[in-house]
Design a protein around this nucleic acid. Structure first.
Lengths: 336, 336
DNA sequence: CGGTTTCTTGTAACCGGTTACAAGACGGAT
DNA sequence: ATCCGTCTTGTAACCGGTTACAAGAAACCG
């Protein structure tokens, strides 16, 4: 046992042990072809003996390339969060990249700071910040670091963006409800200031107007409880309702439970619809009609496009993904 | 406009622009006190003019510290995945650390390789690999990289581990059922070879023995269908049953649905209990009695302990978290 | 056998930060 | 004025890899 117990072996240690140069060791580890087999073996033996593992950080610095993609997400819950990460992770793994997580539970100032801190840590960023103006956010980000915007408002910095067409989805849902004979369709909105919530509300308003119906929007904040509360409010105000379209599934489920608790038949008396198609939507009873967004696919595409940008390819600035209507029992029984 | 449009400014550029040395610029950016205010201002002005952002990778290399924690998870779905990451992310953010994700959808060989690749990229690892022998996994990992094992079998490498006390949870549940007057309590086990499934079955057997009851264990594999099948098997064999304790909620729900389909009253004739407290458990009817694991807390503690290890503190090798009993309607009606 | 090509190998500079150490500037005490 | 201590500042080595370039060895040619 020689000394050097503390600290990992470096490439120079291996070179010394193998009686070779660092360049050769580097070549062996990078599988370059121009190394004599005999030397290669000696290097491998030395590396094995010293239990050498290359230091990724040092490699990244000299290559100016980390193989890491930074993912900046808002304070997400449940299925959406896990699915989008699943999609991203799978795609990233396929390309030999890793994901660096960074939640954005902060204001603009800290947010910008957090993004800048990513320099030298990641090759690119995927930013999802539905409550922050991307122009302000990107303005302070070095232009040299690739970034794509996920589900945000349009940006004027020329950054590529990938977005679900929330308004179109909401219109589709309203059309479905109208086709099912519903007229008094009320909307439970998502969080104030959230761009997706705003877009879904816009689609709802447009489709209601197109159908000659009067829109009614109750506030909500995307969680189950706010769906519950909205229904209680409806009851207190004795409003006429034959359909509830919540801006996401969790609120729809909250509404569903509230209606069940007060003995209202779904879909007999009131149809309920959500948005997102979380797995739970299929499992509860009645099954929840919703707009399905292939979230994992969205995540995978984000990685895909960012990789293209990182590799210097040209990508179109905006890509829209359309959600699709999933009809289940919560809206199926047509009113006479 | 001078040249240098390509590439970010480095600390040397800033030093030149400010007419100072790199050491001073470094001191300013690290908020060291011993810099004359006038010079500090000059450096800040220069940095601002060049739009300088420090390169984290370079900093990490020279500090031998990345501020990143690697999280290696199996191919998880839904709530468990998102909750554990939420807990980790919150705790990590509080400590100024980031999370590097790496899914473990691979065999042992690739797994070891993936872990070794983390050297120089992370300060430590949190590894959750319920299907892989941690001794084999850690044997090839440099001892110098801190790692803690999450919800795995015990390891003999002296690595710290953090685990849910599944056996204790199962005992608690059996005690609850016994206290409710149940005697013929059968257990539906989780997947073969899964350590958590084995531990829950062990707890069940121990508690049954302690109560002087005879244990009956049916095979299952954690999904809804296997709960269904287990109940059908019980019916075919005409076994006497007044309670079913499934190793997780999904199987309990499968059992619940099967019982309902065959007209058995729950909890009147048979009580049903699960494990995990998934969101669905609260929403179905009757509400499912289950053992709740605070998953986010588990994640936070993992980060916590790993941070302690990284900072060179001593931590106990094993820490257990106890799940808590959540009583709902599926077990509440006591038998006469 | 000299000259040219091809292949292997090593030296040293570089990536972009941090920091030990030395040197210079300044102030106070004698 | 001299000496000493304190504070500020700069130089250069270092973290652990990659790689341009040069040099040496081997092979091939006329």
């Amino acid at each position: 046992m020689n000394g050097k117990a503390i600290g990992q072996a470096t490439i120079r240690d291996v070179a010394r042990e193998a009686g070779a140069s660092v360049a050769s060791v580097s070549r062996v580890f990078n599988r370059l072809p121009n190394v004599r087999p005999e030397l290669k073996e000696r290097v491998e033996a030395a590396a094995c003996k010293l239990n050498y593992v290359p230091h990724a950080g040092a490699r990244n610095l000299s290559l100016a390339r980390t193989g890491v993609i930074g993912v900046v997400l808002p304070d997400l819950h449940g299925e959406f969060f896990s699915e989008i990460l699943r999609g991203m992770e799978r795609e990233a793994a396929m390309r030999g990249r890793h994901l660096l997580l960074s939640n954005m539970h902060m204001g603009l100032g800290d947010g910008v700071e957090a993004l800048r801190n990513m320099r030298g840590r990641v090759d690119g960023l995927i930013v999802m910040a539905p409550h922050i103006d991307p122009d302000l956010l990107f303005a302070h980000l070095p232009a040299s670091i690739p970034a794509i915007l996920l589900n945000g408002p349009e940006n004027r910095q020329g950054r590529p963006e990938l977005r679900i067409d929330n308004a179109a989805g909401a219109r589709t849902m309203v059309e479905h409800l109208v086709a099912a004979g519903r007229r008094a369709i009320i909307h439970i909105a998502g969080s104030q200031g959230n761009i997706e919530a705003a877009e879904r509300a816009r689609g709802y308003r447009e489709a209601m107007a197109a159908a000659g119906l009067v829109p009614v929007i109750l506030p909500g904040n995307f969680d189950e409880e706010s769906g519950h509360l909205a229904v209680q409010r409806l009851q207190m105000q004795q409003m006429e309702v034959d359909a509830i379209f919540a801006a996401n599934d969790m609120m729809a489920i909250g509404a569903l439970v509230a209606l069940r608790d007060m003995g209202v038949d779904v879909p007999g008396q009131v149809a309920v619809a959500g948005f997102d198609n979380i797995p739970l939507a299929r499992l509860i009873s009645p099954g929840l009609t919703t707009m399905a967004v292939d979230i994992a696919d969205l995540g995978a595409r984000a990685i895909n496009r960012l990789s293209a940008v990182i590799d210097g390819e040209n990508v179109p600035q905006t890509e829209l993904r359309y959600p699709s209507l999933i009809v289940r029992n919560s809206t199926t029984q047509t009113i006479a």
